[in-house]
């Protein structure tokens, strides 16, 4: 039965963030990447997890994106069950949160951090078998995190898509995965400078080398 409803070519992006103060940044990452994909003629979807209750400060919350060449048929499947890309707006999410649950083989993890991938990898206890690479970028040094409730609960974000740190994180995703053209992303995000610098500076580390080293 499961095979019957497979959507080959559907890519899922899950962004983990801290409740309230990073809601916007998490949402911006998925919105920026999916809107960029839409510019390239893809079918896209972006939304936030409803059950995570994002009105509690620091609680781990998720924002999701879907990108496909075909019309998305699983549009009301409300959680990304098998993400291809996981991104963290904040480094401590590697600790005590099952961020890699359900990832597809070859998945990529993108983390906003000053620390090296080697160090962060030690904290990830579950799900690394399918993980291909870890991407680190110090997005906070490139742009501030914008704290706003504008855009929460499905409303329009009047503060500007990719105005803050999310632009940098989105750029790191694009660098590591090539899920969209970087030029397309630049057309969407407001903070183009942060995106450009992040695209330049993001470090991509092969998980195999981490496993061997560990």
């Amino acid at each position: 039965m499961t095979n019957l409803f497979e959507e080959p070519g559907l890519k899922q992006i899950t962004v983990w963030a801290r409740g309230v103060y990073e809601n916007k940044e998490a949402r911006d990452v998925v919105v920026a990447v999916t809107e960029a994909a839409a510019l390239e003629g893809k079918f896209v979807q972006a939304w936030e997890n409803y059950v995570d209750l994002p009105d509690r400060i620091y609680v781990p919350v998720r924002a999701y994106g879907k990108i496909s060449d075909q019309e998305i048929e699983s549009k009301y499947v409300y959680e990304n069950e098998t993400p291809d890309i996981v991104a963290l707006t904040e480094e401590t999410l590697v600790k005590g949160v099952d961020i890699l649950a359900g990832i597809k083989p070859g998945a990529v993890l993108v983390i906003n951090t000053k620390r090296p991938a080697e160090y962060l990898f030690k904290f990830i206890k579950k799900g690394t078998e399918n993980l291909a690479s870890i991407v680190t970028v110090d997005a906070n040094s490139l742009a501030k995190s914008i704290i706003t409730l504008s855009g929460a609960e499905g409303a329009t974000d009047a503060s500007g898509i990719g105005k803050g740190m999310g632009a940098a994180l989105a750029a790191a995703i694009v660098k590591a995965t090539g899920i969209v053209q970087f030029e397309s992303l630049l057309k969407i995000v407001e903070n183009k400078n942060a995106a450009k610098k992040a695209f330049e500076k993001a470090q991509v580390v092969d998980v195999k080398t981490l496993v061997n080293a560990g």
Partner: peptide, 9 residues
């Protein structure tokens, strides 16, 4: 709620 009200289309 949520399905139609929150997921972008």
């Amino acid at each position: 709620g949520y399905f139609v009200s929150h997921i972008l289309g």
